[in-house]
Amino acid sequence: MNSEKKVYILMITCTLFWAGAFIAGKIGVKEFPPFSLAFFRFLFATAIIFPIMIKYEEKNWKLKKSDWKTIITLGIIGMFGYHALFFTALKYTTAINSAMIGATNPLITSVLASFMIGERLGIKRLGAILLALSGVMLTISEGKLEIIKNISFNMGDIIMLLAVVCWAIYGVISKKVMPKYSPLIITSYSFLVCLIALVPFTLFEKPMEYLPNVTWKGWVSVIYMSIFASVIGYLVQQISIKAIGPSKTMSFINLVPVFSIILSSIILKEDVTLIKIVSVIIIICGVYLNSKLKVNKTKGIVKKG
């Protein structure tokens, strides 16, 4: 087995871990308030990833003073904003719905990049984006026209869509510091900023009142998200980007909603309706087409995938 195939296997495993985060999150929000769940996830993740970063980055792991503003922005919007909204969304919607909406991240990133850093969408790319968003609309409306007319979408689906926007902004802004630092360094410091930002919100949720009642299932969900979905997920992604490039790595995200549907039906016993199956196919097709289309160059900036 050549090295490229090994990377493919690693990335498939990685997407399985990310899909599992939606299941673990759904279990976790039953025992932790949203901010507290995010806090404990990043408490463990930061404690693990920082020593790894220091070991492998050696003397290059310290940030320059001029880059702290960007890193803080990444931590607040991308990590804090995304996960606070993500865990809140899971209180009101299913793991399947949140995973399918989350699959639109590459598309929303493309749209934001066109406004924020001057990337041109083009007709074909815009068509791919609209195709995927139609899948999202089908998901949150459950295929019922009257819901669209009355704009009475599931609140959790709307919150999840806002979470994806936060993550997309993270992806666009990170381009400013990517040439200076490795993904491991950026991710580690983003984790740290997120953890610090979560402290006051976690204290507001009065942890001493609910912590004594948290079961082993709640802690297992936190540890799973910290180790497998966060630390291992990001490190494997970094290895993949280095080995096969960002475009091919991004395409593996298309597998997340597929694995989420399988895991949700087995573990959470969530219903897998025909509408959900059709929706995920539409979303995956849109994301796949978007990742394959070549981006037009504007202002010397190119975005892959």
Rank of each mutant, 00 (worst) to 15 (best):
G122M: 12
Y181R: 10
K64G: 06
S182T: 07
Y56D: 01
L130P: 03
A89H: 02
L107F: 06
Y181N: 06
A84K: 05
I159D: 03
E57R: 13
N154S: 13
G118L: 11
A132L: 13
I52T: 06
A132D: 04
L131K: 04
V136M: 13
K69Y: 08
K59H: 14
F87D: 03
G102Q: 04
A89K: 02
P106V: 00
I159W: 06
N97R: 05
R120L: 10
G102T: 02
F115R: 15
G127H: 03
I151W: 09
D67E: 01
Y92M: 03
F115N: 06
L145D: 04
S66N: 04
T104M: 11
F50R: 05
A168D: 07
N150Q: 13
I108D: 04
F80V: 00
S114I: 07
M116I: 09
I52H: 12
V164N: 05
I71M: 13
I49W: 10
I147Q: 09
A95M: 02
A132M: 12
V136G: 05
V164E: 03
I140L: 14
K176R: 15
I71Q: 05
V165I: 14
L107E: 01
E119Q: 14
I76Y: 07
E58N: 11
L85S: 09
C166D: 10
L138T: 02
V136N: 05
L107W: 04
N60L: 15
K64S: 09
V136L: 15
A103W: 06
S174H: 02
S110D: 01
M178Q: 07
P106H: 01
D67T: 00
G156D: 06
I158K: 05
I49C: 09
K62E: 06
L130D: 00
A168R: 12
W61A: 05
S98D: 06
T73Y: 13
M160S: 11
S174K: 07
K62L: 14
I117A: 00
K149T: 04
T139Q: 08
G75C: 12
E57C: 07
I148L: 15
A95W: 02
I96G: 08
L90D: 02
L130C: 10
M160D: 04
W68L: 13
A95C: 03
S114M: 12
F87P: 05
L161F: 14
A47F: 12
I48G: 11
L74P: 01
P179K: 08
T94I: 05
A95N: 00
S182D: 01
K124S: 12
L162M: 15
L131H: 09
M116G: 01
G78D: 02
V136Y: 06
I77E: 00
L63Y: 08
